[in-house]
């Protein structure tokens, strides 16, 4: 059976609930119905917060924090269709949590690998995010990416820019991590205007480009290798490639 849900975490937990209480047997789970065929049995699931909460409480009660975190991290990989694997992962975990270390299960292996891919992506982003200084000395970065790493990036930069004000803006997802003296956290961005950058910006960008160009050793030029380390998809906001 094909199940369609709204793509939210609560929506997914509702599926888990129905799995146990309504004997729901999904074979495909989609975030939104892509195409219907006449003979498909499609079940559109309405997100129910009480059901979702019940499942969440169950997870918090019976699962170790680390495995629960794996579920949340998997959910941040929003460009992948991980739902079936995650569902099997959760069923397996409720049966016997030890089995979640058994990578001989295809779905456990898939989820563990997806989590690794997520952190690999996050790790790359920690290096490839570029901030620009605004008029009022706030540091502002635009990002895009296949996974939603905003929370982790925000925490990472809260440590290193502890005495700075900064904003990381996920353009595609319309989210922003805002950090200042008083608070830090993720906010929705409804619409925004291009901010005004500080006058120092130009000088340091030029210095940075100069540096980037002159540290390369000409006789060893190898653009293929470079591209395997910095795939084009990451380069959108990287100032040295602009």
């Amino acid at each position: 059976m094909r199940v369609v849900y709204d793509g939210t975490f609560e929506g997914f937990l509702t599926i888990v609930y129905e799995l146990y209480y309504q004997k729901l047997k999904p074979t495909v789970i989609e975030k939104s119905a892509l195409s219907y065929s006449l003979f498909d049995e499609v079940d559109t699931l309405v997100t129910d917060e009480t059901k979702a909460l019940k499942v969440l409480q169950g997870l918090q009660k019976w699962w170790s924090r680390k495995n629960l975190q794996t579920i949340l991290n998997t959910f941040m990989c929003d460009s992948k269709s991980f739902e079936m694997d995650l569902l099997k992962f959760i069923r397996l975990g409720f049966k016997d949590e030890k089995e979640l270390q058994n990578i001989n299960h295809t779905s456990v292996f898939a989820i563990r690998n997806l989590e690794k891919e997520f952190f690999r992506h996050y790790h790359r982003m920690t290096g490839f995010v570029r901030f620009q200084e605004l008029e009022d000395e706030t540091l502002y970065a635009k990002i895009e990416g296949k996974f939603n790493t905003l929370y982790y990036l925000g925490e990472h930069f809260s440590k290193r820019f502890n005495n700075q004000k900064f904003i990381i803006h996920d353009i595609e997802r319309g989210l922003a991590f805002v950090h200042n003296q008083e608070s830090k956290g993720i906010h929705q961005v409804a619409d925004f205007d291009e901010p005004i950058y500080s006058s120092k910006e130009e000088k340091f960008l030029k210095l940075w480009k100069t540096f980037f160009k002159s540290v390369a050793i000409e006789s060893r030029t190898n653009p293929k290798l470079q591209q395997s380390f910095v795939p084009l998809i990451y380069r959108t906001y990287m100032s040295e490639f602009g």
């Binding site: 790790h123 920690t126 290096g127 490839f128 440590k159 290193r160 820019f161 502890n162 005495n163 700075q164 540096f211 980037f212 540290v215 390369a216 050793i217 000409e218 060893r220 030029t221 190898n222 653009p223 293929k224 290798l225 470079q226 395997s228 380390f229 910095v230 990287m238 040295e240």
Partner: peptide
């Protein structure tokens, strides 16, 4: 990292970009 200060080091190390010869740029060398 220290509260109210700038900068932190990362145990794994972070590459910030790669030059045309494919070497990592992590530090201002």
């Amino acid at each position: 990292y220290k509260t109210g200060e700038l900068g932190a080091t990362e145990n794994s190390g972070i590459c910030h970009t790669f030059t045309a010869d494919g070497r990592c740029v992590s530090l201002l060398k």
